[in-house]
Design a protein around this nucleic acid. Sequence first.
DNA 1: CGGCTTGATAGTCTTTGGCTATTAACCCAT
DNA 2: ATGGGTTAATAGCCAAAGACTATCAAGCCG
Lengths: 296, 296
Amino acid sequence: MIDKLDFLLALAREKHFGRAAETCGVTQPTLSAGVKQIEEQMGVLLVKRGSRFQGFTPEGERVLEWARRIVGDTRAMREDIKALRHGLTGRLRIAAIPTALPMVAALTTPYRERHPHVQFTVLSRTSIEILDLLENLEIDAGISYIENEPVGRVNIVPLYQEHYRLLTSADAPLGDRDKVTWTEVAQLPLCLLTPDMQNRRIIDRLLKSAGAESRPTLESNSMILLYSHVRTGRWASVMPEKIAQTLGLTETIRAIPIVEPNAVQTIGLVVPRREPMMPTTAALVTEAKRIAPSLA
Amino acid sequence: MIDKLDFLLALAREKHFGRAAETCGVTQPTLSAGVKQIEEQMGVLLVKRGSRFQGFTPEGERVLEWARRIVGDTRAMREDIKALRHGLTGRLRIAAIPTALPMVAALTTPYRERHPHVQFTVLSRTSIEILDLLENLEIDAGISYIENEPVGRVNIVPLYQEHYRLLTSADAPLGDRDKVTWTEVAQLPLCLLTPDMQNRRIIDRLLKSAGAESRPTLESNSMILLYSHVRTGRWASVMPEKIAQTLGLTETIRAIPIVEPNAVQTIGLVVPRREPMMPTTAALVTEAKRIAPSLA
DNA sequence: CGGCTTGATAGTCTTTGGCTATTAACCCAT
DNA sequence: ATGGGTTAATAGCCAAAGACTATCAAGCCG
């Protein structure tokens, strides 16, 4: 029964019977039969069919919600019992927005001190994708913006605040300043993240509210790429303070506070709202609460 | 898998392999094998054995908690989908403390107006038993005292307040009074519920704090029995106002307010804390919230 | 020590679940 | 239109799981 619900989750992820079957480690006919069996038990069609996958019926969507809970709880139970016997083990899957990646180490390092047998997988994703992955049980925790609070069934632990800096060469325009305004920043040719990243949308909003338009000269979804351009001394970018520090400032590259307004965004840990949590996830929440004050 | 978890729940209820198997509709070896299989999957002994059932190991208790959630959610899912198709159907299982039984009709009657296809099972139980039944998924909702708030994973909807009355014949001692004190009441030979009922324990506490001892002449777990004694005119009892009204006052039997103190206990609906709830249970909560003000 | 209760074990049979191979429906490009 | 390519359903087969009956072993109690 639970395996069949898992089939359904895979189908929701992949939107394709064959691929869903593959991720479940079964063949396509097996997955088809499994889905059909749930439909018979429920007495309703759950999947809209027609020679190819066409999405779920309303009942199907509802069953999916339940399936996420049930499958999630089942896995959590297994982990829970395993932790009772062997301490914390297994793999903790985390996804973080690119600008938060440098802060992940602040979480994983003390975590590993306490629980050396836990392995980590850390993915760089957009804030939207993170919520999606959480929902589909593909990650155990996310690190993302937490302003628009409760999007879905998640719990939130604030971690730190993003402050924005203009990254530029000391001898470039504005490079000698102690602080700059958003209006001034808007005049520069910038390297920014692509618009699917919330960081970019936040910066766009700030530029716009300063009366300027966002017209970045270069877009990328990689902070490394943005930074390597800035390092040449010929480009400028806007980055959160923490990541700018981590990437390392040289004598020639400066990170200048941007004011008017002195914008702030809160970044936090996002975990599935499940009671109790998986033990590995619970330990991550504990760690987050522990270190949050020291990051403030 | 889910069936096996259900075996485990049955075993927790019955504390006996044979009887548990019977309630699950399987034979004893089948249940034994099922339990053993979960133990193998988890890699831990869950049940303490020794020629007869001796309770659960700590890991077993933990698995039980998860099993309750998972099995409960699975049933809720089935009900949920069924409700989407056929409207609300099925059986709603309620347990209430004896003194609250007359109020159940205030809930079931409007409920039935809206959802005529739902059938009811209403049990009279002690407040302790109600929490136990809720925990073990044997009832969908309870009606009980809600003072010592969150005992376990439940949600609560206040319904009304119990006020205490002395039930006695008009020509018996105190029978002509407009109100009496607890100290006075303590002097009478009373018919009260048995001490396993919380109502009795509350009354005992009130009598004690009035400096008197509780020495009921007659104890029973049935309100009907208590009332039938009072009706003879030779006995007296202490009952909540609502049930006294329902049982019917005659010209000779009076319900006299008891003061010093004018004690009050809140009675409420208690449902499993599950998100979302079973649709039939959710409808009951809606109904409870609707009628609560009119009972105040 | 012997009968009774309770849970485990053995042996048999049915059901379920998974696989491969094939078919049917549809999309689309020629 | 028509034929190739894709995608899900169906058929047929086999292995594994699950459930039942019958029996056994360990305690318990008189």
